[in-house]
Nucleic acid binder design. Structure first.
Length: 821
RNA sequence: GCCGGGAUGGCGGAACUGGUAGACGCGCCGGACUCAAAAUCCGGUGGUGGUGACAUCGUGUCGGUUCGAGUCCGACUCUCGGUACCA
């Protein structure tokens, strides 16, 4: 027999050319056909495709191809998240302009993606660094400014005193700038913020509608991130002079146990107090060093300093000292906390360190507490004591009563606080979307008029240092004020790149629209299946959910329940690891997918990466296992060619052997189909196909006709089920089997319930929970008959000898457990 | 620090809702084909004891619930992701 060699290097490009010529993956809304929008998170064009990309896109493509075979009208687009820090770093290192570097990378990576044979509608490709894309972001920014959803406020950044630039948290290593090595300082600068907190409640409630389609862990992380907490705002009047310090607490029941207040080092009162207090000034100066990241603040040694200032307790009028502490965050709540050392662990440790009083006001359920003997705070609920009028109340009642008491004095109220903070979108960087604002000496901050959009980012600079070249470019900087016409200065800050990735999924529906979105967005949205890394579980996915609502509220998306959430189903894939850790250039443990594709072809690469682990788990890289995937494809290639286009009709009457094989075929269809939806465990689906191929391979060329006919049925099903994973090879094999339809749109096989039926089944017989025997029973046998047969069977006698049968448990279709004593 | 995951043979992993632990693949061992090798095909493969049918231990650690626990509950260890300016 003459079987052509399996040569993916020739076969795959030929099939890809065919797809391109036939525009096989072009999405055009077909009336009456159910739509399916499959989307993988678009890549940052770093230069080379890495294994994480291959995995991400193989998963999404398998889903897209499966849904196409299910008869859906599938949209699967691809684009580039093209603004960002690495382009500037590369520009500094190689002297290439960020735009040039980015565009070169896109061209290279597009070629790599095409070589993988992913079923994208390339006509919708977009890159976020093109004015055509980011102009709409500027447009939206202006709309939100009008609505008051964008505002300016001071916020703290990492400042590199040597490079004279703002540093990303990632660029701060052990408290020092990564390039200069200089200790990082904190600076407060005016930035633009998006009022995401106005949507906190809606974003939280929306999570309940995602229970079906999103992983529980992502929902939990988002809930915790939003961090809704009910409590009270309490005002502590300053002992001398005017004003109050406002604090938020979730434990108003412990108010009578507050022994001091702590404010953030950036708090105005701390700064004011430091003017007359050199010790304090020195402390605040020390607090001004180190990264602003939450992780570094929370893990640092907790330190504080008294302000020499006192407040009055809102209920007792007692004077409490005010401290400043390095762990109090200016950005959370009011930048001040009331401290109840007896009932809060952090306050307890702080109080012990600085010898501040500890006042017990909640009785623990077990032993009575004693301040001097405590080794940790009692943070549970309980009955109030040492609390005047409130003694004897439980924590729940006390929360209400104390909040009411404070409110009656005009010194507080019940309130809801969120951990979520407004989204600071200003970046003091060059390679990003220019913020469309103008600074005028007379008029202040003035928005760029809509007709002047886009504010185009100049791309001709050679970067010499990390400082944004926009700051030194008079052509960019100098503009007349749109309001008064006087010479004014353009805003040089650009937007956080998360802004671009917060709406691209919608733009893909209408990439050529001459508005931000048109009616096609509503047709395609929501995304039916979104696929991407867990690392985006909170930030990107929360911002995109927020943007979806902004788009709705400016009238670009319909205000109905269907469109509230952008991503109906979410699959968070695990990372690709090598030797137990993330593949990265710095660790030198990367495996270049290009080499893999060159050597084995795209089908092998895709099959391996889906077979090696379920999508949501980490994937440990293995060269050896790739060989295995390739060998499997080779076997399939030969198996199908050996059979060819024989195409016999499966007769109604089958021999037992043929019946068994047919059952195996249809069990496989059932198993694979189940794993193509829901959990998307492609590794199990592929294993089932491998098992089937092992059975099919045992059928010889001289086998009886009925068996050969079932073999043909099995091969056709197998090739169809393999096509979402190995689309190039199966396209050819479908023809080898004599099939005329286009495999891309051929219906997915369905399991025949008749074929699945079996006459007998094997039950496991356990004694005291341990496997002892196996016995076959007719499918129809009832529990009583099974129990009787087991106890009477000769094989069981040695287990029963000298024992009493205490209990017999029959699990239908599974096992029998004899409890003997 | 805080929030969320993960841990099963030599390796990647399987085990639907508490019911046969180790499917499938890799690796390894043995065999067939070959002058030989590669490729391919066939068989074996968790540990310990036994010639053997079999027995016994075994899913990160310790404890619990249950006729029965990889799966449920409690405590812990290690590890990974996020932590708001990496994307």
């Amino acid at each position: 027999m003459d079987i052509p060699a399996y040569s993916p290097q020739e076969l795959e490009p030929a099939v890809q050319k065919r797809w391109q010529e036939q525009q096989s993956f072009r999405a055009a809304s077909v009336p009456g056909k159910e739509k399916f929008y499959a989307l993988a998170m678009f890549p940052y064009p770093s230069g080379q495709l890495h294994m994480g990309h291959v995995r991400n896109y193989s998963i999404a493509d398998a889903i897209a191809r499966y849904q196409r075979m299910r008869g859906k009208d599938v949209l699967q687009p691809m684009g580039w998240d093209a603004f960002g820090l690495p382009a500037e770093n590369a520009a500094l290192k190689n002297g290439l302009a960020p735009a040039e570097w980015t565009m070169d990378n896109i061209a290279h990576m597009r070629g790599q993606l095409q070589r993988l044979g992913l079923s994208y509608d390339w006509s919708r490709e977009l890159a976020t660094c093109t004015p055509n894309y980011y102009r709409w972001e500027q447009w939206l920014f202006l709309k939100l400014w009008e609505k008051g959803l964008v505002y300016q406020k001071l916020s703290t950044v990492n400042w590199d005193p040597v490079d004279q630039t703002v540093l990303a948290n990632e660029q701060v290593v052990d408290g020092c700038g990564w390039r200069s090595g200089a200790p990082v300082e904190r600076r407060e600068i005016v930035q633009y913020f998006l009022r995401i907190t106005a949507y906190a409640e809606e974003l939280l409630e929306g999570l309940d509608t995602l229970n079906e389609g999103w992983p529980e862990q992502v929902l939990t992380m988002q809930r915790n991130w939003i961090g809704r907490s009910e409590g009270a705002e309490i005002h502590f009047p300053l002992a001398s002079g005017e004003g109050v310090i406002k604090v938020f607490t979730t434990r108003p029941d412990t108010l009578m146990g507050a022994t001091y207040l702590a404010v953030a080092p950036e708090h105005p009162l701390a700064l004011q107090a430091a003017e007359q207090n050199p010790d304090l000034a020195e402390f605040l100066e020390r607090c001004r060093h180190g990264s602003v990241s939450e992780a570094s603040i929370e893990t640092q040694e907790k330190e504080g300093h008294p302000l020499g200032l006192f407040v009055k307790h809102p209920l007792t009028g007692a004077e409490l000292p005010v401290w400043t502490a390095n762990f109090v965050l200016m950005g959370y709540g009011e930048g001040a906390v009331m401290s109840v050392p007896a009932h809060d662990q952090r306050d307890f440790e702080f109080a012990r360190k600085y010898k501040l009083p500890i006042q017990i006001v909640i009785a623990a359920e077990s032993a009575p507490l004693e301040a001097a003997a405590m080794t940790e705070a009692y943070t549970g609920a309980g009955t109030l004591l040492h609390s005047g009028d409130f003694n004897g109340l439980d924590s729940v009642q006390a929360k209400t009563r104390i909040t009411e008491a404070v409110a009656e004095r005009g010194l507080g109220r019940k309130t809801i606080n969120y951990r979520l903070r407004d989204w600071g979108i200003s970046r003091q960087r060059y390679w990003g979307t220019p913020i469309p604002m103008i600074h005028c000496e007379h008029c202040g901050v003035v928005p760029v008029p809509e007709q002047d959009l886009p504010v185009v980012l100049p791309t001709h600079y050679q970067l010499k240092d990390p400082r944004s070249p926009l700051l030194d470019d008079p052509e960019f900087l100098n503009v007349p004020c749109p309001r008064c016409g006087a010479p004014a200065r353009r805003e040089t800050d650009t937007m956080d790149t998360f802004v671009e990735s917060s709406w691209y999924y919608a733009r893909f529906a209408c990439p050529d629209a001459d508005t931000m979105l048109d009616e096609r967005a509503a047709q395609w949205l929501p995304v039916d299946q979104y696929v991407g890394g867990v690392e985006h579980a909170v930030l990107h996915l929360l911002y995109a959910r927020f943007f979806n609502r902004l788009l709705r509220d400016v009238g670009l998306l319909p205000a109905d329940a269907v469109h509230d959430e952008p991503f109906k189903q979410l699959l968070t894939q695990g990372m690709v690891l090598k030797d137990g850790s993330k593949m990265s250039k710095s660790k030198g443990n990367t495996v270049d997918p290009q080499g893999l594709i060159d050597r084995y072809g795209a089908d092998t690469a895709r099959l391996f990466i889906l077979f090696a682990a379920p999508p949501e788990q980490h994937l440990e890289w293995s060269d050896a296992a790739v060989e295995g995937a390739h060998r499997f494809l080779n076997r399939i290639w030969r198996l199908v060619h050996e059979y060819g286009a024989e195409n016999l009709l499966v007769p109604a009457e089958l021999s037992d052997e043929a019946k068994d094989l047919r059952r195996a075929v249809h069990q496989c269809i059932e198993r694979v189909s189940r794993n193509m939806e829901g959990r998307y465990h492609f590794n199990v689906a592929i294993a089932a196909i491998m098992e089937l191929s092992n059975s099919l391979m045992k059928v010889g060329a001289d086998a009886p006709t009925d068996l050969r006919a079932v073999l043909g049925e099995g091969l056709r099903a197998m090739v169809l089920m393999l096509s979402p994973f190995a689309p190039h090879m199966t396209e050819i094999l479908w023809e080898v089997l004599g099939q005329k339809s286009n495999i891309i749109h051929t219906p997915w096989p369905s399991a025949d319930p008749e074929a699945l039926k079996s006459d007998t089944l094997t039950l496991v017989i356990q004694v005291n929970g341990k496997l002892r025997e196996r016995m076959d029973f007719p499918v129809a046998a009832d529990n009583k008959a099974i129990e009787k047969a087991v106890l009477a069977s000769p094989a069981m006698q040695r287990h029963l000898e000298g024992k009493t049968v205490r209990k017999v448990i029959v699990v239908p279709g599974r096992l029998v457990n004899l409890v003997l004593g």
